[in-house]
Write a protein that binds this DNA or RNA. Structure first.
Lengths: 346, 346
DNA sequence: GTGAAAGCGCTAACAT
DNA sequence: ATGTTAGCGCTTTCAC
């Protein structure tokens, strides 16, 4: 039993004694070459059953934990996916990230998460930082990126998936839905219910603004008159919803329908309306966006636009997973669509 | 101008032509040794201004992006921090993660985020996976970990910060607050207002349950009688709040005070009560937990327990940042406290 | 099926 | 201030 004297490297001048257990020390203990341990770990079927058992025993005894930095460097496969999102504090993205993360984790990948703060410059910085980690693929929210950011992304030559929007010209593949159509669909629904006036409260992020513009245009086209527009900072908060509703009331809006760019904003609008003695939906009807978990349980239950956020994350993961192993992925653009969920609030 | 013939490695048998721009190719173009480029990047003050300029020019021209896998392997400093959280879909953790991430990013570190799903076994798996990436430090939520998980964590010999709870015996350093005291403080506040009955709705995660138990014990101790207990799955949702309140009403609870383990749950309780014609706070008083963004803007405004989540993230980051460079960090346990924010709902 | 050898792209002594 | 050298801990041909 001389396993005490492991850890001495072949070279005379090691920088540190390196007491850590490495592939090499496992190999020594199992009485095989390092390459065999590597095979046992990564291609177990290429190793004789008996050898495999010895190696696994050595791993168990030593508590060996493969160094993925070294593995990634040697193989040019980091087994890392990067995901850049506008904000982790926005619930609407959380489920997508969750399903994305779970799916790729099943396949042995980890996710490096970055936050762009709804800002193209920051997005570029984060993308740059993250690319240094040599991810095998990258997940993005939205289709608008700084020009240099696009360049860097393309230069990385890795699979890319853009989500939460749709475009005929994705960087690589895009899975999302059409925000113009969302605005139009809500406009169609609301104008069909004979409201006296229309308003739209939107956070100022690219996609929310797109829905707002499409909604306003479609309402007018259908003879609903000019839509009162309100915007908030990017992100979503109940407080901002209350504020914007208060502002609408000041502008004379006490009867009509309001389309909000998120359910949180919608809830704020509802609460402010109710706090002012306006009835929802009799006086003011409100439509949210996202169909978050709580939308079905507000009082009254919120009419909103449902997006399959979980499917979006899983599909994005599948696209990337297929591409990293050069499997075919049929569609460069996959439109998941959406649906207007009619409940009591509008 | 012979920079066209870069990319040929010194060795005869390169595995791939390796067209990518590396430190070496930048060095060649700048007419310096690779080590100088490395210095220019990591210790610019150790390089002559004129050399630095040439190197930077070469970097700009080539669009060189340092390979952090290689750098981390060579230096045993990955510049990666790991953060394991119960769920990224729970807003209460989002701000802590955000401030933690921002603070460490300023110092050049990236954050690898893992989700434990409120489960100790999963936490251990995630910790193991993440440790393979050789993070320089690790951020955890909670102080309960599987025994093997603790072992692995300690074996990694890196700074560890546990958060969202407090203990005299942290793995390394802990920054949080005392859940027993929270339960007691709310009990003290509520019993002081002469309520007829008491209830507590809590998600079944370790910390929420601790608050619930402490609340119930303290209410009884103060003569408030037996507290009606309700629990939900881990996580928080408005829907569950409504359900639990409905259940309480069925159990005969129509007047009294309810302490909820999250603001979301509290909002659900409020909405359910109001939907049933009960007045808040006259009939049922509601106290939330977390003081999320929306708590101050519900109707009526929610009385809740405020935690400085941003400070918690920043403090955790500072502790880790200090430790990774062997700077002293005074306190192994830092108690950030909490406060009961009295608003209209209770 | 297994081993030997040569790197992956970088950093860190050690010289100069 | 800069260059030289020897690895960091793995994976991957290529032999056997």
């Amino acid at each position: 039993m001389d396993e005490v004297r492991r850890g001495r490297r072949k070279a005379a001048r090691a920088r540190r004694p390196s007491a850590a257990v490495t592939l090499e020390s496992v190999a020594e203990r199992a009485g095989v070459a390092p390459a065999t341990v590597s095979r046992a770990l990564n291609h177990p079927h290429k190793v004789a059953a008996e050898t495999l058992a010895r190696v696994n025993a050595a791993i168990a005894q030593t508590g060996y934990l493969p160094n993925l930095l070294a593995g990634g460097l040697a193989s040019s496969r980091s087994r890392l996916f990067a995901a850049i999102v506008p904000s982790i504090a926005n619930l609407v993205y959380a489920e997508t990230i969750q399903s994305f993360t779970r799916r790729v984790r099943e396949k042995g990948y980890q996710v490096l998460l970055g936050e762009s703060g709804y800002d193209l410059r920051t997005e570029e910085d984060v993308v740059t930082a993250v690319l240094g980690r040599r991810p095998d693929a990258i997940f993005l929210i939205g289709i608008n990126h700084a020009l240099d950011c696009r360049r860097k992304l393309l230069a990385a030559k890795i699979p890319i998936v853009e989500t939460w929007d749709i475009t005929p010209t994705p960087l690589d593949v895009v899975v999302g839905y059409d925000h113009d159509k969302v605005g139009q669909a809500v406009a169609e629904y609301l104008t069909g219910r004979g409201h006296a006036a229309f308003a739209c409260v939107a956070a100022s992020d690219a996609r929310a603004l797109k829905r707002q513009a499409a909604f306003a245009a479609e309402v007018e086209r259908r003879g609903g008159g000019a839509v009162l527009l309100e915007t908030t900072l990017p992100g979503s908060s109940l407080e901002w919803g209350r504020q914007r509703m208060a502002s609408l009331v000041e502008r004379g809006f006490v009867r009509g329908a309001v389309f909000c760019s998120s359910d949180m904003l919608g809830l704020g609008v509802m609460i402010e309306a109710q706090a002012r003695g306006l009835r929802v939906p009799e006086d003011v009807a409100v439509v949210g966006f996202g169909d978050l978990d709580f939308a079905a349980h507000t009082h009254p239950a919120m009419t909103t636009v449902k997006i399959d956020r979980t499917l979006m994350g899983a599909t994005a993961a599948d696209a990337l997973l297929a591409r990293v192993v050069d499997q075919p992925w049929p569609d460069a653009v996959v439109d998941l669509g959406f649906s207007v969920v009619v409940r009591a609030s509008a």
